[in-house]
Design a protein around this nucleic acid. Structure first.
Length: 286
DNA sequence: AGAGGTGTTGTGCC
DNA sequence: TGGCACAACACCTC
C-alpha cells in the first residue's frame, strides 16, 4: 500500500532513528526476501554504518559505508521499526538488523511481498532496471508540463494505468491515482492523447500538490500503514473518492462509483469526471 | 467456510 | 516490443 508519501514518511522517520548507527549483525528469517542469499547478505552488512537513507519513487535506498546500498521495496505491507534489543517480535518479522547501540531495526511484512537487495552504490544500484527506467519525481521542478505533454501526446493508453506506470511518473499508486483524477475532473478511462493541455496542467498541479500535502500529513493509513514511529498517517481524512463508493461527491453530490480498470479498483464521480465525447461508446463498463 | 478482493512489481505470454 | 494478465503472499470480508 505504501505509495510515495508513505515511503517518504518512513524515510524521514528512519533517518531520525538510525542514520549514523552501525550494524552489529543481521538475521534473515525468510530467505526469499533478500538478495544475494542470506549468508552473503548478512556477512556483507556486519560493521557497516548507515550513512543516510535516500528514496526514489517508492524505493528506499539505505546508503552504507563502503559504497554499499540496500535497495528496499515495501510492496504492499512492508514496515520498518526500531525497538530495543530483545523486545518481542511477531511471526511476520522477517529481517532484523542488530545495531551496535542495543537497538534493532526490524522489517515486518505480513504478505512477504517486500524485497531488499544489496548492491554497489553508484553503479549497480542505480543500474537496477526499475530504478534506471523510473520517471521523474512528482515535484514542480522535475515533473514539467513539457514532459507531461511529451509522454501524453502519443499514447493511446487509458489514463488510469498510465498514471500507475512508474516509468512515466514516479510514486503514484492506486489511491493517489484515483484522487488526482478526481481533482483534475478526468475520467479514469480517458485515452491519454485526448487530454487537453488545460486538463494536463490541472492534472500536473494536482499531482504535485496532492503528493506534497500527503507527505505533510505523514501519508495515508488504509489497512496497515504506519510511520517508523508506529503512528498512523493522517491523509486518509483527505481522500475524496478512494474507498468512498456510494458516498456523495464533495463537489456535486453524485454518488461515487467503483469500477475495475486494468484489474484495479477505481473510484470516480460519474458527473464531475465524464468521458470525453471522443471516447464515448468505446467502453461498456459494468 | 471457501472464494474473491486487496496493491505493487516483475515475469511471461502473445 | 509493448501491452496485458497474472504470480508472489496473507489476511479480511462476504
Amino acid at each position: 500500500m505504501p505509495e510515495l508519501p508513505e515511503v517518504e514518511t518512513v524515510r524521514r522517520g528512519l533517518t531520525q532513528l538510525v542514520a549514523g548507527a552501525t550494524i552489529d549483525h543481521v538475521e534473515v528469517f525468510y530467505p526469499k526476501m533478500v538478495t544475494p542469499e542470506p549468508e552473503v547478505f548478512t556477512a556483507e552488512l556486519i560493521g557497516r554504518k548507515i550513512e543516510k537513507i535516500d528514496r526514489r519513487g517508492k524505493y528506499l535506498l539505505f546508503r552504507f559505508s563502503g559504497n554499499l546500498t540496500m535497495v528496499s521495496h515495501l510492496r504492499m505491507e512492508g514496515k520498518y521499526d526500531v525497538q530495543p534489543e530483545g523486545s518481542p517480535v511477531t511471526k511476520h518479522t522477517h529481517v532484523i538488523f542488530h545495531l551496535t547501540d542495543e537497538r534493532e531495526l526490524r522489517y515486518t511484512d505480513t504478505r512477504k511481498f517486500g524485497r531488499m537487495r544489496l548492491l554497489k552504490t553508484g553503479t549497480e544500484a542505480e543500474a537496477l532496471p526499475s530504478l534506471a527506467k523510473m520517471g521523474p519525481e512528482p515535484t514542480a521542478d522535475t515533473l514539467t508540463l513539457t514532459y507531461m505533454q511529451k509522454i501524453f501526446g502519443k499514447s493511446h493508453k487509458i489514463i488510469k494505468p498510465f498514471l500507475l506506470d512508474q516509468s512515466r511518473i514516479a510514486g503514484l499508486g492506486n489511491i493517489y491515482a484515483d484522487e488526482v483524477l478526481w481533482l483534475a475532473k478526468i475520467n479514469p478511462l480517458t485515452p491519454v492523447d485526448t487530454v487537453t493541455d488545460d486538463q494536463l496542467e490541472t492534472l500536473r498541479q494536482a499531482i504535485i500538490a496532492e503528493i506534497k500535502k500527503a507527505i505533510a500529513g505523514h501519508g495515508t493509513t488504509v489497512h496497515s500503514f504506519s510511520t517508523a514511529f508506529g503512528e498512523a498517517g493522517q491523509f486518509q481524512n483527505d481522500l475524496h473518492v478512494y474507498g468512498r463508493e456510494g458516498e456523495p461527491c464533495e463537489r456535486c453530490g453524485t454518488e461515487i462509483v467503483k469500477i475495475k480498470v486494468a484489474q484495479r479498483g477505481t473510484h470516480y464521480c460519474p458527473h464531475c469526471q465524464p468521458l470525453p465525447p471522443s471516447a464515448e461508446g468505446m467502453f461498456d463498463d459494468d
